[in-house]
Simulated scan of single mutants.
Amino acid sequence: MIALLHTSPVHVPVFDALRDRDHPDVELLHTVRVDLLERAVDEGPDAVAPALVDALVDAVGRGATSVLCTCSTLGAIAEASAVAVGVPVLRVDRPMAAVAAGRRRVAVVAALASTVEPTVALIHEEARARAGQQDGLGPAQGPDVHAVVVDGAWERFLAGDRKGYLDAVAAAVDALGDADVIVLAQASMADAVERTRTPVPVLSSPRSGLQGAVAALRAHQRSPRGSTG
């Protein structure tokens, strides 16, 4: 069982559909905590770390053996909680960031400003890993990353205007200039890909993130610790 930590209920049917299509033998346990993102936006992600750990520990207590955090703002905090939680914890945007890290010019599109710094930092982290570097050993010879926050998009999302939200994201993507790849920083943006006209590859996180979580689950099950429960 994979536990998914969401900060919006809109993600539940998206990931259920991806599971049904790609991983029908995997059980998903959804936890929706809108309050965690609201507090993280106001006080910073570190402020919600204890509550986040409690939510994940509860999911593990209900049988989860792997965790996927679908909120990009909280992704780094979630991954850092893996030792306390006791099972693999993956942020949904890591597989996407690993792909983007291999390109020279990366554009990040976000609807929420708090998502920008974690997403950009993750791409640079993956670039260092690709270059065989470690933190503190000098700058990575990685991509040039620039970010755009889509004006008014998050307000549309909060108001339930899904069409307006996706249209605004797609318009922002199509307005971008020089980029080798475009990263949609939030999982809720994924359906905007089909509305874009840009020839530049546009990456979204839900499908690759779930694939990564399933891979982590399989690896955990094969490990001595995982096989003994």
Rank of each mutant, 00 (worst) to 15 (best):
E43D: 06
A187S: 12
S114H: 12
A147R: 14
A213G: 14
A55E: 04
L29I: 07
S205Y: 03
G212N: 00
R33I: 00
D22I: 01
V200G: 02
Q221E: 04
M189I: 10
H146F: 14
A47Q: 06
V202G: 00
P13H: 01
D167P: 09
A82I: 06
A121Q: 12
R222M: 11
T7M: 01
G86L: 09
V200F: 03
A113H: 11
A82H: 09
A172K: 11
A49I: 10
Q141D: 14
A107C: 09
G61W: 07
V181W: 06
L90T: 00
V181G: 08
E126R: 09
D54R: 12
L74T: 14
L52C: 10
P88L: 01
R39G: 11
A175H: 04
V214K: 03
A127T: 00
W154M: 00
R105W: 10
G138M: 04
L158F: 05
Q186G: 05
L210K: 08
G209H: 02
R130G: 09
R130I: 03
A175G: 03
A113M: 13
D174N: 05
G61R: 05
D135N: 07
V85K: 03
L52S: 12
H11G: 11
D58A: 12
F157N: 03
E194L: 07
R33C: 00
D25L: 09
R91S: 12
D16L: 05
L203D: 03
V108F: 13
R225P: 15
G102I: 04
R33M: 02
I2P: 10
S205V: 02
G86H: 09
L5P: 15
T31E: 12
T7H: 04
G212I: 00
A171Y: 11
T115S: 15
L5M: 11
P224L: 02
A59G: 07
L56F: 12
G138I: 06
Q221K: 07
A98D: 03
L217E: 13
E27V: 15
V214P: 05
P13G: 00
S204P: 11
Q141R: 10
A215M: 09
A172N: 12
V193S: 08
I182G: 15
Q134M: 11
G102R: 05
S8N: 08
Q133D: 09
V169C: 07
V149W: 15
V181S: 08
R105I: 05
E126P: 10
V200S: 02
A76V: 07
A64R: 08
I77V: 15
S188H: 10
V10F: 15
G136T: 00
R218M: 06
A168T: 09
G160K: 06
A17Y: 05
E117G: 10
